[in-house]
Design a binder for these strands. Sequence first.
DNA 1: TATTGTTATACTCTATAACTATA
DNA 2: TATAGTTATAGAGTATAACAATA
Lengths: 164, 164
Amino acid sequence: MADKAQYEELVRQFSAFGAVKRELGRILPEGCSSASAAVLALLSRHGDIRMGKLAELTAVDMSVISRQVAHMTVQGWIDRSEDPADRRSRILRLTPEGRDQLDELSERTARLLADRLGDWTDDEVGRLIRLMARLRASFGGACEPAAPAAPSAPPDHHTDEGSP
Amino acid sequence: MADKAQYEELVRQFSAFGAVKRELGRILPEGCSSASAAVLALLSRHGDIRMGKLAELTAVDMSVISRQVAHMTVQGWIDRSEDPADRRSRILRLTPEGRDQLDELSERTARLLADRLGDWTDDEVGRLIRLMARLRASFGGACEPAAPAAPSAPPDHHTDEGSP
DNA sequence: TATTGTTATACTCTATAACTATA
DNA sequence: TATAGTTATAGAGTATAACAATA
């Protein structure tokens, strides 16, 4: 268990992390915001999912996801079709164009990270990944299914610790 | 050196981290935004500094800091006085009220983190702190005084295992 | 002319609340 | 009535550009 000074330092790092996020945001392709990039990555990883699930994965209100997805649908990156089993719902799926966009995105971010993190070992990068994943989980992360009363059953169980 | 898949996973963690930031933001005292909290902490740590220096420390445009500081000055948390040596500049300093606010802030965040991170060892918290500090440094971090002219030790991969 | 800071404007991300349509 | 999603509105954070005062 950490002490108060350590927690203060941690929060300071959290604040400063915004600069990293902003720098990553600057290399995004035209028309693709940081939020769009996150949605593309999640759709690629989780396959066909509903709005509510996407909201849960991103830990934002569904209204936020709704607007985001609407925008990306107009851009042709997402196919938003009706769920035949429940006509209130929508099934989201990446279009080929969306996948192209994601590929371009991955290319650019990998290039930037390779430049900035060139002197990190892959073990160090892996440690940061695992610690951030655990941080998210500790904060009620929508990654591990807290399974409150989920009728749709405990969804995917992507092992976040897995090394590629 | 990490591979592309690992970088993608890292970026995914970066995106998901927003949820942690938002949850921390929800416990802030009334009238104290996340940005204000960061400025309070920096002023407390770095003493009397100028606008430009604060902009550098936060890695945002000076126009952003200018508005933020103006707001905090109205709230009575910052004393923004002229620099007698250069009348274009302003010297920023925490007021006693600002320090009170920072204390309240630290209290709340420490409480939340103690709750969420209760099962982390202080060594684990320390590792996360160090990795995030290094990440920031790798991204041209404006945290360490950045060695203006005489870098005693370039922002090397200091595996600073030392206690704060 | 260059630097320090301010102001105006626009854009992104987010949450709340009111709404529609299904269940 | 309850749930899935949409829309309207408001607020915070940020960047760019035009501006003022001073160096």
